[in-house]
C-alpha cells in the first residue's frame, strides 16, 4: 500500500517534470522567434540609417543620375512608413528599397572616381554587410519559426501548446523574386 502510493507519487512527479520541461521549451522557442524577428528589424533600420550617408557621398559624383538617387530616397521613405503597416506591406516596401539600392550601386560602376573614393568603398562594405545581415537574420528567423512550429504541431508537445495558447507562426518569405535578383547582381 505504502509502496504503491510512492510509485504513484513518483509517476506524477515525473509527468509534471516532463510537462514543465515541454512548456519551458515552448516558451524558449517562442522567445527565440521574437528575438529573431527583432534582429530583422534592427538590420532594416540600420539600412535606413545608412542611405542618407550614401546619397550624400555619391551626390557630388553622380550629377546625371538624379532619377536613380530620388528613387532610392523615395523607396526609403516608403519603407520607413510601411514599418507600422503589417509584415506583408513592410516586406514589399523593403524589397523595393533593395531593388532601388541595387540599381544605384550598379550605376555607380560607371563612375571610376566614385569607386576610388574611400568613403564610398566604406559605405559599400557597410551596405553589402547589412544586406547579408538582413538575409541571415531572416534565415535565422525562419529556422527558429520552423523549430517553434514543429514543437506546436508534434506530439506530445502539441497538447501543451494548444493548452498554453502557443500558435504556429508564419515564415518570412521573400515573395518578390526581383529582390533576390537585385541583391545577387550588386552584392556578389
Amino acid at each position: 500500500m505504502f509502496i504503491g502510493g510512492l510509485v504513484v507519487i513518483g509517476i506524477l512527479v515525473v509527468v509534471v517534470l516532463i510537462i514543465v520541461g515541454i512548456y519551458n521549451g515552448l516558451v524558449g522557442a517562442r522567445n527565440q522567434v521574437k528575438n529573431a524577428w527583432a534582429q530583422i528589424d534592427v538590420q532594416l533600420k540600420r539600412r535606413h540609417d545608412l542611405i542618407p550617408n550614401l546619397i550624400e557621398t555619391v551626390k557630388g559624383y553622380m550629377q546625371h543620375e538624379r532619377g536613380t538617387l530620388e528613387a532610392v530616397t523615395n523607396a526609403r521613405t516608403t519603407a520607413i512608413k510601411a514599418a507600422d503597416g503589417g509584415v506583408a506591406a513592410q516586406a514589399r516596401a523593403e524589397g523595393e528599397l533593395s531593388q532601388a539600392l541595387g540599381g544605384l550601386l550598379a550605376v555607380a560602376e560607371n563612375y571610376p572616381d566614385l569607386k576610388a573614393s574611400q568613403n564610398f568603398l566604406a559605405l559599400q562594405e557597410e551596405l553589402t554587410s547589412t544586406e547579408n545581415k538582413i538575409s541571415f537574420s531572416r534565415q535565422f528567423y525562419n529556422d527558429s519559426m520552423l523549430q517553434f512550429n514543429n514543437k506546436t504541431q508534434m506530439f506530445p508537445s502539441n497538447i501543451i501548446a494548444s493548452m498554453g495558447g502557443f500558435k504556429a507562426g508564419e515564415f518570412f518569405e521573400v515573395t518578390d523574386t526581383a529582390e533576390r535578383e537585385a541583391t545577387k547582381v550588386s552584392f556578389s
Partner: peptide, 16 residues
C-alpha cells in the same frame, strides 16, 4: 577592419 568585423557579425546573426 570593417570587413572581417562585418563578416563575424553576419555569422553571429546566422547562428543566433
Amino acid at each position: 577592419m570593417p570587413r572581417i568585423y562585418n563578416v563575424v557579425e553576419e555569422m553571429k546573426i546566422a547562428c543566433g
